[in-house]
Structures are given as C-alpha cells and as structure tokens.
Write a protein that binds this DNA or RNA. Sequence first.
DNA 1: ATTATTTTATCGCGATGCGCTAATTTCTAT
DNA 2: ATAGAAATTAGCGCATCGCGATAAAATAAT
Lengths: 272, 272
Amino acid sequence: MTTLDAGRPSSRKRGATAAEKADDPLMVMSVDKAFRVLSAFGRQYPTLNLSQVASVTGMDISSAQRFSHTLTRLGYLRKDPETKRFELTAKTLEVGHHFIRGSRFIDRALPYLLHLSKETEETVNLTVLEDTSIIFVSRFLSRHMLNTDVVIGSRMPVYCSGPGIAMLSRLPEDEAMAILDRCDLEPHTPATTWQREALAAKVRQARAQGYATAFEEFYLGDGSIAAPILDHRGRPEGAVNIAVSLSRYSPEEVASRFSSLIIATAHAISRV
Amino acid sequence: MTTLDAGRPSSRKRGATAAEKADDPLMVMSVDKAFRVLSAFGRQYPTLNLSQVASVTGMDISSAQRFSHTLTRLGYLRKDPETKRFELTAKTLEVGHHFIRGSRFIDRALPYLLHLSKETEETVNLTVLEDTSIIFVSRFLSRHMLNTDVVIGSRMPVYCSGPGIAMLSRLPEDEAMAILDRCDLEPHTPATTWQREALAAKVRQARAQGYATAFEEFYLGDGSIAAPILDHRGRPEGAVNIAVSLSRYSPEEVASRFSSLIIATAHAISRV
DNA sequence: ATTATTTTATCGCGATGCGCTAATTTCTAT
DNA sequence: ATAGAAATTAGCGCATCGCGATAAAATAAT
C-alpha cells in the first residue's frame, strides 16, 4: 500500500505528544493513544487497515495493533474480517450522546429553539465555543433547508460564523483577541472576513448591536444571525442563531427581520 | 456526600471487567477504564465530583483521579474549579461526528431520506443495529414533531421498535432469536410486545410483509413503520422508518399510507 | 473548634503493555 | 503457477508506566 504519513517526526521513543507525560505523572498515555486511533478515522479515511492506522497516527505497528484491537473489543471499532479494514461503529456516538442528554444548558434552551423554529420556519442552531471553533450541539432544520453538511458535532472556525463572533463579543476584549490569535486565519470563501483588524471590528460591532451576522463567510449562499447566551456570571456559554439561504433573504432583510427575535431568544435562555 | 454505588461487587483486585484482560494480552485495560469514566456521566449524573466518579465506576480513588485528570487534559472532561465537579465537554461529540461523516451508508441514504421527508412531511429516521439496540444515525424531524427525546445517538431496544423488528426480519431466524434472547424483555408501555413468542411472530410477519410497524411500543402516542436496508450480501445494514403521532393517524392509516413508500425507499438505499 | 470528607500530591513496586521479532496469511507481479 | 513483497497475527522478555496505598492540604459538616 501507498504511504500516507500524517506528519509527526516519527522520532522520539515513547508517545509523549509534545511533552504531555513529561511533567504530568497523572497522565495516562494509553488513553491519548486510543483517542489518536479513533480520531484517525473520519471523512478523509472512513476505513483504515492496520498499517494505515500506524502511519496516520504515527505509532509503530505494535501499538496500532494493540489499540485497534482494544477499541474493537470495546465496540468502538469494527473490523471487516474479509478486507481486514477497521471502521468506526455507531457506538462512537455514545459518549457524545451522554453529553447531549446530560447538558442542562441544551435542555434549558430546547423549548426556546423549538419556538424560534416554528415562529420563523427557518433553521435554528445552538452552538458552544471550544478552543477556536464553535460546535453545533442542537439544531432544528427548516423545510427549506440548505446545508445538510452541518450536523450535531460539526465544527466551524469562530471567526467566520455568526455564533462565533457573537460569543467573542461578550468575552473580555483580551480573551477574545487571544482566541482570534490562536486561529489560523484564512479565507474560506471570497466573502470571508479573515484579517485580524477587520475581525476585531466585527466583534466590536456585535458587542454594540447585541447580535452578529455572517454572510457567506464559510458556506456560499448561507447567511446567519446570532446572539450570545450568558451564564449566571455573565460569560457566554453558547449562542443561538438562525441560518437562512441568501436566495430567500437579502442581508438587510435578515437583520431587520430577525435581530430582535434572536436577541430576545438568547436573553430568555441566558441566566445572567 | 451520599453513597451512590453503581453495583459492581467492588471486590476483585484489578479492573478485569469479566475476564477481559484474562486471556487477551492485546487488551489495554487503561482504555477500558477511560471509557468507563466517560460513560459514568449522562442524563443520570450530569456532573460528578472525584469520589463520585470513583463510586459510580467502581474504581478506587487513585484511578478515578488519574483517569479524570487524563480525560480533562485531553479535553473530553471539564472541571469546574469552584465546585470541583467534572462534566463532559462538547468535544465528546467529535468521535461520533467522525463516524457520521465517514459513513458511506449514511451518506448514501441521505438523499432518499430527504425525499421521503419532503414527500410525507413526517419524521424520518435512519437506524442501525448494535447488539440488542437500534441506534439513530440520521434523522429529519417533521414540523409536527413529537418526541424531541430521540436524537442522533439515541438507543432503543430492538424488540420494541419498528426498525428493530424490520432488521431482525432479514436476519437468519436463529440469529434473530439469539438477539431477542440476549435482550432483557420487559414492557415499556402497556402496549409493548415483549413475550418471546409474540415477538417471533412479529418478526415473521415483518418478513412476509417487507415492513414492520410499532405502535406505542416504547413511547406512548408514537407510531412507526420501518423497512430494512440490505447490504451487498443481503444482510440488513440498517433500517429506514417514518415516525408519526398517533393523534394524527390510526395504525391502519399508517400502514396503508406509507407501507409501499417505506419499502421502496429501503429498496432504493439497499445494495443487494 | 473539631471532626469528617474530599481533593491533591508523592512514591516505591510490580504487573502491564511496549516494541522487537518471527510465523503466517494475503496481495502483486511476473 | 510461482516467487516475492507486504501486511497481519502471534509470542515474549524487559523496562516502564501506572497502580494503589498513603499522607498532606483543602473543604465541608457538626
């Protein structure tokens, strides 16, 4: 088979992903390796044979064998006995599902999202901030949906999404800028705002308005208007947004039609 | 704090969940423990402090400490510095999301599900079989939705779901019965079919008809009609179903109105 | 204040799992 | 077909990693 190395200098004796273990005696490296194996699979590599697991994760063949085997025994991987290729099983949904079902935040937001969805007949999302991404944690598709690409668990860069800007707008300025600085800023469409200063301006504007918009910043033809949801300390713990097809609304219409509704919804879910 | 032991005799020195390691030198027990910790969280225990992690997972405090710490470092748990309580993060959605995005099966089914959803204006689901459960892997909610309880990753017992019976109906008889025998059969509503023989009859009927129905077998007021999707070998690799509120349809209407449509859709997705 | 719990930190020992090696199976090419 | 290459499966001895007991510190309860 062809080599498909995934970077990783392949030197350095034991795993130690950038001095992880180094000074942290409580870190169990086997767990990290297990997740490295699981994360090797995805859109890019839906199935992998053993040597591919090794090369994609940067582990030696023995470790790849041990961890693939272990994960198979635990039910998170399945191995086709014919092709000897591994793939993820539906059981991988389990932990994320526990997160969804256990989240008081998502639970609290649910009725408001439903209401917003019926009221507007448009797609409604709940997202949270995670490092430099937003993650979709709840979603109600409208009848005239676009974008079946986005699904629970999908990520988007903070800086080119309405919810991302909305959440940044309620963080202390320095924290918001620190997050932007950790992003690798790059255009995803011709319309992406990706320069540091322009983004800072968008964040300031969102702070003033109470909501943020994003038009074709990540997906072409896609518009979004979002407002931040605050926790009991006044920090953003998520955002709610309405996503529409720009073939049905102009950017101005999106703002005029939905801004007060999205602000009111976010406020209702907030606990500040 | 109050004791909340989760069964587990608490005897037996090392983890060894039912002779896992025993004769399997390739099994890495640390991975099992990590998942035991993650699985401790959920609807029942949305947050846990360290000693609760220990008691729920049946591990000693040191192990609980090590694995909670490790999972926090990896980003799958978050620890509230004030309350010292752990909770799952949105990152736990990652692996399941990779499964969804990498699945050729789900991808292939998507356009047919969308079409079925628009055609019927009802809720449409794609499910797969996993041990004695079905797992929801794709879902399109109708405008008059019921049941926001079900979500991607949700499980239901095979024996009280339309998709479950539908899939069993295309397995060899002995395999199907073996699965039923592994279930702990019990009524979930007054209408649940849960006796072994009655279930065998339902499976036979589904095999003859090409589709299966379930009315209030698990959720009250909920009706479902399902058909099995076959892989290239003729084995069921999933099922498609339409879920409706019984306030809007009688059981007879469900069958007469949707049976041919659900069969045709399942057939179109099949690769036999 | 005193006691009881829980969390955090430390550490020596031994089982665990690492990674080298070899046997076996599967694939490719001639 | 046959040989050769590549990948998978299996075995094993040694070093290391992580186990689990313990103690110190922090927090909660009485």
